[in-house]
């Protein structure tokens, strides 16, 4: 070895292997440290960048932590009333069949208040992409019980743990929509490790590519953390998620089109 390679030698444009996509608007994200939303945002935006569809994409933001998603995504976006994103997306896609239309929703939005809109958009087979972030809690409003809160899991409205006898069962809405003939591709992913992120990226890419086929809803659930709501350190929250969330919400494809298997 002739001379010692310094950081300055490596940090050059020609050696660049990863940078933040320019579609990610350059401002501080409003999410808590360690929150999976940021990664999920990035994967959606990288997909749009790589497919070259910025001018053809219309996104719908939910109510919840990601209500401000449109502040960070450099694409045309609409903000929906709580749970109604699939209804907005239905109309946008019907009126603009040539556009790529997606919703980005949390568990409270998609699986509680918006259950009807979710089920019926999926059942009609709307040619849209649904990105569903499931962290088992209402993060934005301060950690209340969500439709996906695990049995026994503590939240501010289940302070002694979710009692399924009185509070009902967590809803596996992803398995539910997979049963509907209108869904084309249904998968559950995570973004807590490099490997999981790479898989989630592939799933999101497929979910967007599928819109070219006009075969129905592509539905990507991302099981994510809410370290503030769960009252844990970010790294600890990811570990807790692996131990507790994944057994109940197992990762992997739930419905894959025959021709893509």
């Amino acid at each position: 070895m002739a001379e010692k390679i310094t950081t300055n030698d490596i940090v050059k444009e020609e050696n660049l292997v990863f940078r933040k996509t320019p579609l990610f608007i350059d401002k501080p994200l409003s999410y808590c440290p360690g929150c999976g939303h940021g990664v999920a945002h990035r994967l959606v935006l990288e997909t749009i960048e790589e497919m070259g569809i910025q001018s053809e994409t219309i996104g719908v933001a939910p109510v919840g932590c990601s209500v401000l998603a449109y502040e960070f995504m450099d694409i045309d976006m609409q903000q929906a009333a709580h749970g109604r994103a699939p209804a907005l997306a239905t109309a946008i896609k019907r009126l603009h069949p040539e556009k790529f239309v997606f919703t980005y929703q949390g568990d409270g939005d998609l699986a509680a208040i918006g259950t009807a809109e979710t089920i019926h958009a999926c059942n009609r087979g709307e040619n849209i992409t649904i990105i569903f972030i499931n962290n088992g809690i209402y993060g934005m409003t301060g950690g209340q019980m969500a439709p996906t809160t695990l049995p026994g899991m503590k939240s501010s409205t289940s302070p002694y743990g979710r009692d399924i006898k009185t509070m009902g069962n967590p809803l596996k809405i992803t398995e539910l929509v997979a049963q509907l003939p209108g869904t084309y591709y249904v998968t559950r992913q995570a973004v807590h490790t490099p490997g999981a992120v790479r898989k989630a990226k592939k799933a999101i890419r497929m979910a967007f590519e599928n819109q070219k086929l006009n075969k129905g809803v592509s539905f990507v659930e991302i099981v994510s953390n809410c370290n503030s709501g769960w009252k844990m350190e970010p790294v600890q929250a990811n570990e807790w998620m692996v131990e507790n969330m994944f057994p109940f919400f197992p990762l992997g494809d739930i419905k894959v089109p025959a021709e893509q298997k």
């Binding site: 109604r84 209804a87 907005l88 997306a89 239905t90 109309a91 946008i92 089920i119």
Partner: peptide, 17 residues
Amino acid sequence: AESEVAAINMVYGGAAT
């Protein structure tokens, strides 16, 4: 639509475009 709620939100989505 599946409900009046969905119908008006479809109008919201379409009007925005």
